[in-house]
């Protein structure tokens, strides 16, 4: 029996955001936008979904006079991401 893939993570853009945040301390919205190539609207929606699931924390502030949104992976997010990768590995090893 295969483990169920986390539906929050099993989406292209949300998974890309989580992968970036897993390898960085925290990341600006602008950096995530540049890395993923997503539109601001779509990225905002997906970030909200990840934040609602408790996988990332979002902090809104200012850098100088410019508004700044910073995202950071939470311990729950790290755990979910690790479980998701493990589940993927099981799928792949079963397919060999």
């Amino acid at each position: 029996m295969f483990p169920k893939l986390d539906p929050i993570l099993h989406s292209e853009l949300r998974l890309a955001v989580m992968s970036i945040l897993a390898g960085a301390d925290e990341a600006d919205f602008s950096f995530l936008k540049k890395q993923t190539g997503a539109s601001s609207g779509n990225l905002s929606v997906q970030i909200d979904k990840l934040a609602s699931a408790g996988y990332i924390s979002v902090e809104k502030g200012f850098k100088g006079k410019m508004p700044r949104t910073t995202c950071k992976i939470t311990p729950a997010g790290q755990e979910a991401f690790a479980s998701y990768v493990e589940a993927l590995k099981e799928y792949l090893s079963a397919g060999k």
Partner: peptide, 21 residues
């Protein structure tokens, strides 16, 4: 997304971000 595509996406996103940093 297939499992293969997901893993590929994770690896690519992680590496691209690491390189930029």
């Amino acid at each position: 997304m297939t499992a293969q595509e997901s893993l590929q996406l994770i690896t690519e996103s992680f590496n691209k971000s690491r390189k930029d940093i």
